[in-house]
Amino acid sequence: MENKTRTIILIVIALLFIGVVIFGMTKKDSPQGEVIAWNDNMTMGSRDAAHHFIVYTDVFCPYCDNFSRVLEENTEALQEEYLDTGDVFLEYRMTDMISDHSENSTRGGEAAYCAAEQGKFWEFYEAILAKLWDDYHSKGIGTSKTSPEIPKLDDEYYISASDEVDKDALKTCLDEHQTLETLKSNTRKASRLVNGGVPYFAFDGWTGSGFEGNWSTVKAMFAAGMK
């Protein structure tokens, strides 16, 4: 009798777990809404492209960094195979979704929107990720829930990241919190659309979260989205 009860309990636990997995995989994603970009300066490719791929991200999210670095290392292939062909319009939606875990997340997001206002989002984003990689992520700092946290960074860290950004304008923008409301409102919108944390990919018919792969993984994600 005792064995029978144990077996039933085990079956219930296993079924619950399978249920959670299926729920995570098949939960109907919220419609991504209008296919217009939230910020035109955070996009790549032609607006007339056949597919609109969206990446929800956070400057301080290590897995977002993984994804962006893979894209950067393969910029030429990305351009030739997906953007120039008119297949993909790629949009980044910057949030501070990990602000519960990283005290820098909000300030980093503000700086990204400030740079976007100058039309220099990609230059800033590439530079800040490279800087974060050199200073922290490559040393195992701020890379996971158990790694040491990145210390509170001052504004100068963002201002000095890229020489292509107008530093004075960026400083004023940060001092006056000019983009804070945009960041917060976009994060609120994103939290309704994202299913499982950032990075979150809404590639037309395919959605998924997390990234630890390489260029072949990105190609597979693009292929899944273009189906």
């Binding site: 959605t207 792969g213 292929a223």
Partner: peptide, 25 residues
């Protein structure tokens, strides 16, 4: 532990070669 992305790719309509590469990674 790497999110739902790779798991979902294994069930997506991509080629067997691409799935094999993801599994190898």
């Amino acid at each position: 532990s790497s999110g739902t992305g790779e798991l979902k790719l294994l069930f997506a309509g991509i080629s067997l070669g691409e799935k094999a590469q993801i599994m190898a990674n």
